[in-house]
């Protein structure tokens, strides 16, 4: 925050409004990379059939969708400040990002409409791979589209950002990436613990006389269900 507000110089064109860039762009990059990584995790799940990879893929998508909503909201505020409009429908960058977020919003009904856990994990992984492949294709298509409305900060013919802005941007990107990883870890840990508690309740509620010899209550199974 100190770097953003007191170190990075004011943008010659946009002035103080450009400070939104340091939260908006890193969130967009991390969200999009998160979607692609979720696709890779989905592919690993299909290859190994280990449900842990499906849950990692799900959590990566979940946090990326939250970041995506943040990108849309901060982008709308930036648009209102710069262009006087909350949204511009003929701008490919904005519309394509909205499409990506809406596409991933359909992941939840798809996932939770299937009751069989194995089938649900398989379908969710296929979705994650397909949508994950769509993200870079979509990004490339937007880059190729000729539009002068949305600012192209990186790799512009005029030389791009000065060093102080780059440093501030990289620190912001690192911070947002660490935040993303922390939230993913927190979510996975919460799911894992919930699964273990459910399993423990099942073990405690079964009659000791029924079935195989009672499992010691202090031993929690190593591979619990995440449901």
């Amino acid at each position: 925050m100190a770097l953003i507000f007191f170190y990075a110089p004011l943008d010659a064109d946009q002035g103080f409004i450009q400070k939104i860039f340091y939260v908006h762009v890193p969130m967009a990059i991390v969200a999009l990379v998160g979607f692609v990584i979720a696709g890779v995790l989905g592919a690993i799940h299909l290859r190994t059939r280990d449900e842990v990879w499906d849950y990692r893929s799900y959590v990566a998508i979940h946090i990326s969708v939250i970041f995506g909503v943040g990108v849309l909201l901060t982008g709308a505020i930036w648009a209102k400040a710069s262009w006087g409009k909350w949204w511009v429908w003929d701008e490919p960058t904005l519309v394509s990002f909205l499409i990506v977020v809406l596409l991933y919003a359909t992941y939840y009904p798809l996932r939770y409409s299937i009751e069989d856990p194995g089938r649900r994990a398989r379908y969710a992984s296929v979705f994650a791979i397909t949508a994950g492949a769509f993200v870079p294709v979509n990004f490339a298509a937007v880059r190729m589209a000729q539009s002068l409305v949305h600012p192209r900060v990186f790799a512009t013919a005029s030389g791009g950002m000065p060093g102080e802005m780059w440093l501030t941007f990289l620190v912001s990107l690192l911070g947002i990436t660490l935040l993303y990883l922390t939230l993913v870890r927190l979510e996975l840990s919460a799911k894992h613990t919930r699964g273990r508690l459910k399993r423990l309740r099942k073990l405690l509620e079964t009659e000791p006389s029924a079935g195989p010899p009672a499992t010691p209550l202090t031993t929690v199974p190593a591979r619990p269900s995440y449901d």
Partner: peptide, 16 residues
């Protein structure tokens, strides 16, 4: 611009 920048960072913090 201050109110817009504050709103954008406010959205980010609120989401978290």
């Amino acid at each position: 611009a201050g109110k817009y920048v504050a709103a954008a960072y406010g959205v980010f913090v609120t989401l978290i």
